[in-house]
Amino acid sequence: MRPKELGTLFLTFSKVGVMTFGGGYAMLPILQREVVESKGWATEEELTDYYAVGQCTPGIIAVNTATFVGQKLAGVAGGIVATLGVVFPSLVIITVIAALLSNFAEVAAVQHAFAGIRVCVCVLIINAVVKLWKKTVVDLPTLLIFLAVLALSLFTSLSPVIYVLCSAAAGVLIKNLGARK
C-alpha cells in the first residue's frame, strides 16, 4: 500500500479515536459509520468477528479492532498504522489535561456534559446492536446463543472469554449435527 493510503488509514482511525467516548464498545457506532458505511473497509459481520476475537485476546478491544481492520486493508504495516492512529488523539489530549488541568474531571460543566454524553452513547450502542443483530442473529440456534449469552452476562460475572469459546464450540456442533440429519 502506498504512503498516501497509509495516511488515510491513520487519519480515519484518529477520527474514530477522538470520537469515542467511553470504552471499546462506545467505539462501535463510530466504526460502523466511518469504516463500514463511509469507507467500506469492512462489513458489519467482520466487525462482530473482530469484537468476538478482541474479547478473548490480550489488550484493549479498541486497539484489537483497529489492528484487525488495518491488517485487512494493508497487511502488517496497515495494522500498525491504524492502531497508532486510534491511539494518537488520546496521547495528545491526555498529556495536555495531565499537564494543565489535573482537576479536569471535577469541573461541574465537564461532569454535566459527560452525564449527557453517556445517555447518548447508550442510544448509539443500542442502535449499533440492532444493526449487528440483523446480520448475526439469522436463525433459531443463533437466537438461542444470543439470548443465553445476554442473560448470563447480565446476571453472572463470568469472563466473556468463556461465552465466546462456548458459542464457537456450539456453532461447530450445531452446523455438524444439522448436516448429519
Binding site: 464498545y25 462482530t48 474479547q55 443500542i126 446492536v129 442473529v137 462456548c166 456453532g171
Partner: peptide, 26 residues
C-alpha cells in the same frame, strides 16, 4: 465459518449487555 457462525450472536449479546450496563448507570 462454523466457529464464527456461533461466535457472532455471542459477540452481539456481549455488546448489548455492555450497553445495558451503561444504561443502568445513566
Amino acid at each position: 465459518e462454523q466457529v464464527f457462525y456461533g461466535m457472532r450472536p455471542a459477540s452481539t449479546a456481549l455488546i448489548a449487555a455492555a450497553g445495558i450496563g451503561v444504561l443502568q448507570i445513566c
